[in-house]
Design a binder for these strands. Structure first.
Lengths: 194, 194
DNA sequence: TCGTTCATTGAATATGTATTCAATATACAA
DNA sequence: TTGTATATTGAATACATATTCAATGAACGA
């Protein structure tokens, strides 16, 4: 393994460790020394890999943004694209909730993306997280579902925001208590159902 | 007005200002100087009223805990007590969402209580917020609704957690964007509906 | 009116933690 | 093997901000 690869590995290790801690304890309560100790490496060395705590967060959020992009244009999305709208959303949630155990980092990434959108988070990362927009995409899906009569009447944008806010709330609850069972996706989709 | 009353007024002004800022910008991003400037008063004076930022948060959370207590045993609760379970929850949400504009501090208090429960918030305040438990109460309500056939099958505790996590998610979204319209309470209650 | 007490200020201090840095070890290339 | 670049360390520093404090002003009771 070349030295460059080594470095890349280490970088990823830091990112994954930070992701865990940020979601577990919150960004502000996670100290650089906590991350360093968990990797493990010396605190000083952290700064050979990331020039600051904020940049580290930013890198994570960029990864999350790319991942979301990839997900919504990838083959899985295509395969689902012509399902009925409610089936599509149910499938998505099913997948996401199963990631909570099987691919915790994917799950954590989603939770982090939601958290970073909030007031009081570092500006730059926040902007990137805000730019990732599932709201409009889902709103279009909802409008389609309304045409087909599977979804109730209502402003699709508002419904989309409420749907994702609910999902975020539940994912944070799950992140806080890893023992918690996932809800039946049907429950959440019911928010939208006719 | 006596001097003691003056002081009490000032105390409340600080508490309300802090509540606003904590919800608006987040606890960690809200500096003592921010609160002082907003009241307005000198930063030093803050410490004649509250011995620390954490204690200030704690006071707010204690108020929130009492308020919740009062709400769930007060006359309004009694009046609702023999409504069908779904009507009860719908009424509660209706009220809460209307507070978003009419009594923002009540709304903010609810949002804060939810936020303080999260990892990374000051321990003492967190314990108090955690002790306020709508989960069990609502779970009982859900069980009743299941008997009556208005709610779907499922673990009432899990359903209760998911319901409140969704509500929290949406209230935080509303707190972030004060222009946002409130959802129809029916949407949220649908999470539980048969 | 005078003295005592409380309110108020803003600059000084303490503290926690992000960030830097000088020193050392390790890998690699010639 | 030797010299150069990179990785690594942990202690020193910088910085942000919570907290203290000495000084001043305002209210109140006697």
């Amino acid at each position: 393994m070349t030295r460059k690869e080594q470095k890349e590995e280490r970088r990823k290790a830091i990112l994954m460790t930070a992701l865990n801690l940020f979601v577990e304890k919150g960004y502000y309560d996670t100290k650089i020394t906590d991350i360093a100790a968990a990797v493990p490496m010396s605190t000083g060395l952290m700064f050979h890999y990331f020039e600051s705590k904020e940049v580290l967060l930013l890198e994570l959020v960029k990864m999350g943004a790319e991942g979301t992009q990839a997900l919504s244009s990838g083959p899985a999305a295509q395969a689902m694209a012509d399902l009925p709208a409610d089936q599509y959303l149910k499938g998505f949630l099913q997948q996401m909730f199963s990631f909570a155990n099987e691919q915790p980092w994917v799950f954590n990434m989603f939770v982090l993306m939601g958290q970073v959108r909030r007031n009081g988070m570092p500006e730059e990362a926040r902007k990137v997280a805000m730019a990732v927009n599932s709201i409009d995409f889902t709103a279009a899906l909802i409008a389609r579902g309304q045409m087909d009569g599977v979804f109730r009447a209502g402003d699709p944008i508002l419904m989309s925001r409420c749907f994702w806010a609910s999902v975020q709330g539940i994912m944070e609850e799950m992140a806080m208590d890893r023992e918690m069972e996932a809800p039946d996706p049907e429950w959440l989709v019911s928010i939208l159902k006719a």
